[in-house]
Amino acid sequence: MRGSRLGHRLRVGGGVFVCALFLFPVFWMVLTSFKAPRDAFTRPPKLFFTPTLESYTAYLTFADVPGRMLNTVIVAAGAGLVSIVAGAMAGYALSRIRLRGAATIGAVILLSRGVPPIALAVPMFIVARQLDLLDRHITLILAYCTFLIPYVMWLMRGFFAALPRELEEAAAIDGCSRFGTFLRIIVPISLPGLIATFIFSVILAWEELLFALVLTSREAVTVPVAVAGIAADMTSGVNWSALCAVGTITVIPVVIFSLAVQKWLIQGLSDGATKA
C-alpha cells in the first residue's frame, strides 16, 4: 500500500479535498450564524457582510441553550455508554460464541430496528407517564438504547468476526475465563471498532429529535428540540442566523470529543498490532 511518493501525496491531497467539500455546507452554516437575519437570504448570497454576534449572545441565552446542551451531553453520553457495553457484549456473543438460538435472538434484536420510530413515540409516552418518568434523562437514555443497541451489536459483530480465531484459543489455553478473554484480549484489540461505534452512537443520540420532542417538556429538553423550536417560529419568521448559531455550537463538543477519542483509536491500533 505504500506506493510512490507522488501517489501518497495525491492520496493525502484527495482526502483533504473531499473533506473540504463535505465541510463546505458547515462553513456556510458558520458564516450564516454571523449574519444578521436580513443578510441570510440575499440575492446574490453575501460572502462579505458586517458580522454580528447577536445570534450567539442574544438568542442563545434566550432559548436556554446551555441548559439544553447539558441535557444533550448527559443523554448522549448515557445512551452511548449503556449501548456500547450491552451492544458489544451481544455482538461478541453473536460472532464468537456458539449458542443455540442466539442467531435468532440476534436477528430479532436487529429487526427491532425495523420498527418505524413513529410507532414507538406515543406508546413510550404512555408508559413513561404511567411510571412518572416523563421529562427525565433516564427515559430518553432508555429510549435511545432501543435504536443504538441493535446498531452497536451489529457493527461490533462485524468487527469481531474479522478477528483471527487463534486469539481466543490462545487465551483459553492460558486459562482465561470467557468474560476475561473478552475483556482482556478482544476489547483492547477491537478498540478502533469500539471507539468508532461509540462515536457513532453518541452522535445518533446527540441529534435525535422525535423521541426528545415527545418525551420531554422542560427539564430534559435537548438541543435538537430547541432547534426545532427556533425553526418553528411563526411569529416573525424563522431566524436562520440563530438556527445556524445553535447548529454551530452543537457541533463543537462532538468534534472535540471525537478528536479526544481519536488518540485511543490510534492507540488501539498499536496495542492490537503488538498483541496480534
Partner: peptide, 23 residues
Amino acid sequence: QGQVAAMFMWGSVYRGTAIDPAT
C-alpha cells in the same frame, strides 16, 4: 428581500417584515 411585490401571509410577521431592520 424585496423580490416580490405581494405576499399572502399571517399578519404576525408584520413587525419583522416592515419594522425591524435586523430582519
